[in-house]
Amino acid sequence: MSGEQTSEDLLVSVRELNFGYANRVIYDGINVDIRRGKVTAIMGPSGTGKTTLLRIIGGQWHPSHGQVLFDGVDVHRESRRGLYRLRQRMGMLFQNGALLTDLTVFENVAYPLREHTKLPDSMIRDIVLMKLEAVGLRGARDLYPEELSGGMARRVALARAIALDPDMVMYDEPFTGQDPISMGVLMRLIRSLNQSLGITSIVVSHDVGEVLSISDYAYIVSAGKVLDHGTPDQIRNSKSELVQQFLQGRPDGPIPFHYKAEPLTSELMGDAQ
C-alpha cells in the first residue's frame, strides 16, 4: 500500500469511506491517497461513483462512514465557513461544465475572481484572458454558454476551475467530447499546470491510454472497491484480470458491462407469458 509515503506528501486522503444513495451502496470502505503536486488518475466503469467521489472530497455530500482529509483537515467536520475556505483552494471541473447560463464566457471565468478577490477590473480582465487563451477560447469570450458546443463549454469550465490558481483541481472527464487536437492541448495543459504551478490534479477519465500517459499515479475503482492502484506502468502490467479487462475494453470478464439485472432470456420469456 502507500505505506512508504509520509502524510506530509498527501494533500487528500480518503479513509475507509462508506457512501450510499438512498437504496444503493456506492462505496464500501475505500482508501484513496492524492499526493501533493502529482497528477492522480481515477478510472472505473461508468456509474461506479467517480463523480460521487469528487463531490465527497469537495464536501458536497457526506459519507456515512469514514473521513476525507484535505491538507490534514477533516472536510466533513469543518464549519460552513471553514469548508468554504477549503473550497477556495480546490477547483472542480464538472462533467457537464455547469457554466452559469446567464453570464458570458468571460464573466463565467471572472466569477470566482470577483467573488473571492478584490482585484481591480483591469487585472481581472488580464487574468481571465490568459486563462481563456490557455484553453484556446479567448475569441469566444462574449458568447453565452448556450452558444457553445459541449467540448467548448467544458474547456471554459476548465478555465474557470483554474481561475483562482487553486492548490488542487479535480477534473471530471475533461477529455470527453474533445477533438484530438484540443485533447492534446488539454493534456499538455493539465500536465503543465501541474509542473509549473505545482497544482495537484485528480483526473477522472475513461480515456485510459491518454490519462495514464499524463498521470503519476492511478486508481481503478469498481463496485465500491479499489481494484488496483499504482504508477501507470504498474497498472498497465497489472496481473489482475479485472484491470486488464478494463484497460482493454472487453465486455466479458469479471466487471459486468450491464447494470445489475435478471438474465435477459428469463425476462424475455417472462414477458411472453
Binding site: 468554504y84 464538472f94 457554466l99
Partner: peptide
Amino acid sequence: GLMRATDQLSAMEMMAVDPMRR
C-alpha cells in the same frame, strides 16, 4: 430548478460561493 438540474448550484458551491446568498 434548471440551475439545480444543470449543476450550476453545485458549481457555485464548489467555487465557495453560497447559492443561498447569491
